[in-house]
Design a binder for these strands. Sequence first.
DNA 1: TCGTCGTGGTTCAACTTTCAACCTTGACGG
DNA 2: CCGTCAAGGTTGAAAGTTGAACCACGACGA
Lengths: 157, 157
Amino acid sequence: MIGMTEDPRWLTDDEQRAWRAYLRANRMLWAALDQQLQRDSRLPHAYYLILVALSERPGRRATMSELATLAGTSPSALSHAVGKLEAQGWVSRCRDTLNGRIVLATLTDEGFAELVAAAPGHVGEVRRMIFDRLAPDQVAQLAEICSAIAGEDPAWP
Amino acid sequence: MIGMTEDPRWLTDDEQRAWRAYLRANRMLWAALDQQLQRDSRLPHAYYLILVALSERPGRRATMSELATLAGTSPSALSHAVGKLEAQGWVSRCRDTLNGRIVLATLTDEGFAELVAAAPGHVGEVRRMIFDRLAPDQVAQLAEICSAIAGEDPAWP
DNA sequence: TCGTCGTGGTTCAACTTTCAACCTTGACGG
DNA sequence: CCGTCAAGGTTGAAAGTTGAACCACGACGA
């Protein structure tokens, strides 16, 4: 490796192993998930998450800012994405009447139907790729580890 | 949730929690890593991995196919990426003299220097985002979990 | 020797994301 | 009132990735 000896912040062998395993697993996982969603629902994963986020809001609606946070995309990417979803008729956008600079995105019935159709296949793929391969205590460990990395309380929903 | 009752392959609450934690952690991780590499080295992570893969080969060279496997990209993406890296002078491409349909990519000295310059910052970010936040046994658990998901033996390098 | 086939790479068009610049709306102080 | 300012969203161009079609080289049988 490069400059292995002088830099004290280099990775140990165990860390190196874990990091590389993570990179491999992550690649395979996203390849499988994206492919499944694209093949069965012609939907990028980010768009699927937008539909999910909306479906879990009261009234199936949210402001663009909220939605960006919930779905984990940048405001810009969200705007483009919602534009496409709106063109498909799955989401509708309208300016809030009380607060003219807020835009509310609403999941339409067609959008909800699309989500209902897409969800089982996607969840099945998540199960096949992750939870079918892990023991129950590993599931708990994974939640703990990911919460630590995300800097959150693991008891959160 | 949607159709919670009828489908036996739905996620349990624990699995749901782990999956959402994973999504959050993964997003934050890649946001941080991509931003660091882009800011400090103007290098997408995929390109960094290509340089790393080449640097670890004997003679710092590999065929495009090998390189695609090692760096975990599609042949198409690799071709584009190596085109850019070649334009920067960090990689050079030449057709194999014995086997005319094989293309060998070689890491140049400039490319290696670039990698040496970029590596400490990137590794530091990996450490900050992951290993500084995990206990030693969690590192082992992570390796185990990721190996299971990737379908590999955890003892592998 | 020649046609066919498969492997190794590249190219093209479509799509997504990002970054920066921009527009609009409401708040606030003078 | 009016000018300034920040918050909320959008837009456009550039960059990267993807999947399909495509080209080039070499192997192999007739």
